[in-house]
Design a protein around this nucleic acid. Structure first.
Length: 107
DNA sequence: AGTGTGACTTGGG
DNA sequence: ACCCAAGCCACAC
């Protein structure tokens, strides 16, 4: 397993309850700004194995990235269950719920 | 080996 | 605010 994958997993596991991160954010923290798609693949592949909170990962628009499937409803349920406000289109206020490991605690 | 696709991102109209 | 196009990377056929 390459360090990038490992980092991505660790980062996603570090997302606190009630907060979300974008794919690009995770990828950048893992060391690859262009790795957003790779993050997606890792989530798809490892979420079940590593029990990752995949529902706390959204796209840059702050919207639930997944297509219209059961999983999307499940993610919506998880997010709202953690206290995150999601609108009818599955959109989230990134300015409010975005988690910054580098600044979220110190600032 | 080449082509197509995706739970993405950013920039421009 | 919304829609469209181009860029990127890894995997599947």
């Amino acid at each position: 397993m390459n360090p990038f994958t490992c980092k991505v997993i660790e980062i996603i596991k570090s997302i606190p309850e009630g907060y979300v991160m974008t794919y690009g954010q995770v990828a950048e923290l893992a060391g690859s700004r262009r790795g957003a798609r790779q993050v997606v693949r890792i989530l798809h592949s490892m979420s079940r194995i590593h029990q990752l909170p995949w529902h706390r990962v959204v796209n840059a628009k702050g919207e639930i990235a997944i297509r219209e499937d059961e999983s999307r409803s499940l993610q919506l349920l998880y997010l709202t269950g953690e206290g995150i406000q999601v609108d009818g289109n599955g959109r989230i206020d990134l300015e409010v719920y975005r988690y910054n490991p580098d600044c979220g605690d110190g600032v």
